[in-house]
Design a protein around this nucleic acid. Structure first.
Lengths: 169, 169
DNA sequence: TGCCTAACCGTCCGTTCCGTACTATACGCT
DNA sequence: AGCGTATAGTACGGAACGGACGGTTAGGCA
């Protein structure tokens, strides 16, 4: 019973999806998008279209199963297959990680001669808004059982933005 | 004397190149790559191929001029055109910046159930190595005149990695 | 002088990623 | 029923990525 699954290279984004599905079980693309926002979006941003494109890719390669919803929109519901779960745990067990990567247009502008002072104000506001947002997710996530992994990443996110605010001084 | 220049959308990466050329004047792709490494690579990473592909794009759109080197490899030497400089200063003057973006596979693994302790060691080492590297560039850059913009971004980079090390505790 | 080798420099190319714009469905309200 | 809004999904072109490979140059050494 050999399945004709295309072999693909799993990228960080792939694992992000697998991880979310590993946490929460069966999900539609929309669910995935929501779940990422309240967990890892801060450390692994993906555009919402990825939540639609990537599961298809992963399913084609045998890492996800897809079934059709019964009523309503008859959306596709994805879940990890055995291969998917294996790939995920194997990857998570690898101690090597690619280095973190930062992308900051503000610094670019400063490099190009912009006045740092002028830019920092809105940056501070942005970090504060992010903190709000993450704290919102945090209280949400803490009110239910079984969201410990999300909680951990949110805590990390809060710590991160606090450090960034410190740094701007 | 209308020049047939294709209009393109300038991305953050485009401006990164323009900014480097704005700082240092005429450069080959290889020079650009080097210059980025010792200045903004930390806040705007680009693969080396971009230093070859993007200038061609920018030149086609009229933002850069290209001339052939005389001897040796007869490489293309790029410089800002008037349009390029204008686009650059205009962009730098805009107070809006896209929010900074972080991408960290380690957090992803922790989210997927990996042991944070196990991963942090090499992460600490990585940040320390980065600090070394940036400080190296810093002393290099400080030994000559006219590298103030690079210096500023390097200083920011040092501050960043120091904060990250603090955070890991 | 000529060879060898390492460092330097550049290109090709398939895949992935991204953002924008647009469409469609469900649901609550009057 | 009709309308408005939030929810959900698609299409697609262009940019970014990265690996693999190919060519060039300079310097050391026989």
């Amino acid at each position: 019973m050999r399945s004709k699954s295309k072999t693909i290279k799993l990228t960080g984004t792939s694992y992000a999806l697998l991880a979310v599905l590993g946490e929460f079980g069966e999900m539609t693309s929309y669910d995935i998008k929501q779940a990422m926002e309240s967990s890892i979006q801060n450390f692994w941003p993906v555009p919402h279209t990825t939540a639609y494109e990537e599961p298809a890719r992963l399913a084609a390669a045998g890492y996800l199963s897809a079934r059709q919803e019964e009523g309503g929109r008859r959306r596709r519901v994805y879940a990890l297959t055995k291969a998917g779960r294996e790939a995920l745990t194997e990857w998570a067990a690898e101690p090597e990680t690619s280095p973190p990567q930062l992308r900051d247009e503000m610094i670019l502008k400063v490099f190009a001669g912009a006045d740092p002072e002028a830019l920092q104000e809105s940056r501070v506001a942005w970090h504060k808004a992010k903190l709000e947002e993450l704290r919102g997710y945090l209280t949400m996530v803490r009110s239910v059982e079984g969201f410990e992994p999300s909680e951990r990443t949110l805590v990390a996110g809060v710590a991160y933005h606090e450090k960034m605010l410190e740094m701007i001084d």
